[in-house]
Write a protein that binds this DNA or RNA. Structure first.
Lengths: 170, 170
DNA sequence: CAAGGTCACTACGAAGATCGTAGTGACTCG
DNA sequence: CGAGTCACTACGATCTTCGTAGTGACCTTG
């Protein structure tokens, strides 16, 4: 996490300083896809991060301005973690990493049709992801999930290249 | 780099296993943007990786099938590293990381008009990056660079604010 | 209102990764 | 040949991470 700051002026290097480790993007994924927002929820992820490392990562993400922490007003023990606007900017990165992984992992758990949907409507889907997460929702989980939105109102190129724009798009 | 074993079926996690460390994407960046292909060239990057770590990273990238190593036929000391097809698939990830970094680093070294150009023509630019790197070229360096291609044949939406491409800017 | 559970974290020792420098052997160039 | 260059290895000091076991603040339940 330490890694010389101000070392190079390369934007890739800058990005990797902020979230280029094994854990940070998994926290972002937990928020974006699964609507997780608390320490114990992150801790319970499949990848088994240890509490001290999670604590350090969250400190790093908060310090880099990607994540915001706030006490839960209803339960004084709880702390809630949300993406900041800067953190929401990681969604395109996350989507590309997910697409790469889904394409190259023979045992991927990602549904093929969802990957295809995102690939073919990337800008629109990134927009939906971002707006949904901004208001506290998630991609796969909850009433206001992007999955639910897509079921109700599919984006442009679903199935055939028929281009009939639905009423509220663009 | 080790991690792995049991793991999850999440494509993001799979991707991070392969290139989710501080150095791997920098090697990919050196190949894609700057046309670097040898050990010493990677070693000389601004970020000062140590030889033992670079060696381990290259082994990892080769092992993950992202990079291919081949002896230089003209110089028996030299070893050349190139992206495989799977490694070329990282270009969209790299582009998104670069865009994020350029957007959020106040001291970024990335030219603003290039970033705008890529943002506004992403699919087309990713295609040009990929084809150029596939045949051994790079984005910013060399006769066949993407910069040179764009100067000769700009992509679609090159009108409003972005102008005056710096022909040889690095 | 006390006992017990849950919450976000810390502590800590062992294990592993990284850093920086100093080689090493294979090869090329003059 | 001798000097220089190439891709690495070796190695010890210094992080970082892992895994488990707390800790104190705060609900919840009887």
């Amino acid at each position: 996490m330490k890694r010389a700051s101000g070392r190079s002026t390369c934007p890739v290097s800058f990005g990797l300083e902020a979230f280029g480790d094994r854990w940070s993007l998994l926290v972002v994924r937990d928020i974006v896809y699964f609507g997780k927002h608390t320490f114990n929820e992150f801790l319970a992820s499949d990848e088994a991060i240890s509490p001290s490392v999670l604590s350090a990562r969250l400190d790093g993400l908060v310090g880099a301005g990607l994540v915001r922490r706030s006490p839960d007003p209803a339960d004084g023990r709880r702390v809630r973690y949300d993406l900041t606007e800067r953190g929401l900017g990681l969604i395109p990165v996350l989507v590309e990493v997910a697409e790469w992984g889904a394409t190259h992992d023979p045992a991927t758990g990602a549904p093929a049709d969802w990957i295809a949907l995102v690939r073919e409507n990337k800008a629109e889907m990134v927009r939906r992801y971002t707006e949904t997460v901004r208001r506290g929702g998630a991609v796969f989980v909850g009433e206001d999930s992007v999955v639910a939105q897509v079921a109700a109102d599919p984006p442009g190129a679903l199935r055939a290249p028929a281009r009939a724009l639905p009423a509220g798009s663009a």
